[in-house]
């Protein structure tokens, strides 16, 4: 079955991002297709490569990246939410005159239409939030 996942919260602050990760991983391991993971609200903070948790804690960002590498997962950060919260890729840096980027590999920034499309294309939308 084709699933879409929406993540509304940032890493560490709230368990939503952990739940979304474990759910997505379990779905992929069971052979389901995950059409897209869409990060919204503070969820876009899951996609900064500058995250540096203590060594004895999980690295939530790298965990997403590894999952995406293994399963060719589409990880999308909402552009409007990302701009508000300072998550920047090269295109956004150029467009908005920012002096750095911080997006993690395997993530991409795109519009809210990607969430709507995921909901239309998928058999189920599963939302994780606060």
């Amino acid at each position: 079955m084709k699933l879409a996942v929406q993540v509304n919260e940032g890493p560490y602050q709230h368990e939503a991002s952990d739940s979304a990760y474990h759910f997505t991983k379990a779905a992929l391991e069971k052979g389901h297709e995950v059409f897209r993971v869409f990060f919204y609200h503070d969820g876009v903070l899951n996609g900064t490569r500058l995250t540096t948790p203590p060594q004895d804690d999980r690295n939530i960002v790298e965990r997403w990246v590894a999952l995406a590498e293994k399963y060719d997962l589409d990880l999308v950060l909402c552009v409007a939410a990302a701009q508000r919260r300072g998550i920047v890729d090269e295109g956004e840096a150029e467009r908005n005159g920012k002096d750095a980027t911080n997006i993690a590999p395997k993530f991409r920034i795109s519009g809210l239409g990607q969430l709507i499309e995921a909901a239309i294309q998928s058999d189920r939308l599963v939302v994780f939030g606060d």
């Binding site: 509304n8 919204y40 609200h41 409007a80 939410a81 519009g111 809210l112 239409g113 969430l115 709507i116 499309e117 239309i120």
Partner: peptide, 19 residues
């Protein structure tokens, strides 16, 4: 919190998809 406003933004963008 921003939830109400950002969810309204989804509704506005979603209008283009004719659902």
């Amino acid at each position: 919190t921003i939830y109400a406003w950002e969810s309204l933004e989804v509704v506005l963008i979603g209008a283009a998809f004719d659902q």
